[in-house]
Write a protein that binds this DNA or RNA. Structure first.
Lengths: 136, 136
DNA sequence: GTGCTGTTCTATATCTTATAGAGCAGGAAG
DNA sequence: CTTCCTGCTCTATAAGATATAGAACAGCAC
């Protein structure tokens, strides 16, 4: 689990950590049961404060993706094979998707290009993350 | 141009305004040349400070979507028919798309469901916004 | 001149972000 | 038991973002 963050980015560090973990889960790099580095360890590796890592992990826990306890540390609790998402998640996610796609269309990206981008991005996830779905 | 914002949302007001304008441009509700309400007018309508609207408009201007001048006020400068987006935009947008799609996959949404959501969202935009692309 | 527009300053209050240090409870390993 | 690491919680501080507010200026229309 190698994780890279950009300290000069305008997006908060804890948000970047969360995003990278989410992407790792989606790509199958992290599956249910996979251990994550401890908050203090990851903080030391990234050269940041452990409270920042703690905030990212806590966010992932509230999203249902991570399980945290003093015994085993941080462990992945949910991945692509853990069943459908909650209703409120889908609702919120669709709204954010709408805004993101609108941005591309408004900037002049063609529908086919935008959809192709979605398709290829999803394909890169589902190549490695496989387990329950029937193959296409 | 009716615009609604949620004052109790965790997403900043100026960001909500920006998002709604972007979506209006993508849906064809706003085309190149369409006038937007003045900062003071929109602020009064929404019951917020005009500086907040100013920030949203300034953001949209920096994104190339709006043209602001003392003569005509705020006018849409770019829409789906204004040619392809800048390279740095596509790069940044793809990274954000990757994170958003990863979130859906990690939460257990199927690839086909996610792609279908992208497709239907894009379809709702391009029904009204048409001008340069050859029809499918 | 009057009135509208965007634009630019100062100022303030609140929240977020990131840092830092200290400590506690629980399990593992010596 | 002691030692060590774990998540977790508290206080504290500095810097930045967010939203408010008031005032003023320059350009254009009537």
């Amino acid at each position: 689990m190698i994780l890279s963050v950009d300290l000069n980015s305008e997006v908060p560090i804890y948000q970047q950590i969360r995003d990278r973990v989410v992407e790792a889960i989606a790509s199958g790099e992290l599956a249910v049961g996979s251990p994550l580095p401890s908050t203090r360890q990851l903080a030391a590796d990234l050269g940041i404060n452990f409270h920042t890592v703690n905030k990212a992990y806590d966010l992932l826990r509230r999203e249902g993706l991570l399980l945290l306890n003093r015994k085993n540390g941080a462990v992945v609790q949910r991945d692509a094979s853990s069943g459908p998402p909650a209703a409120h998640f889908t609702e919120d996610w669709t709204a954010r998707l709408r805004t993101l796609l609108a941005e591309a269309v408004a900037q002049g990206m063609g529908d086919r290009e935008a959809l192709a981008a979605c398709e290829s991005t999803l394909a890169r996830f589902t190549v490695t993350a496989r387990g329950q779905g029937e193959p296409a």
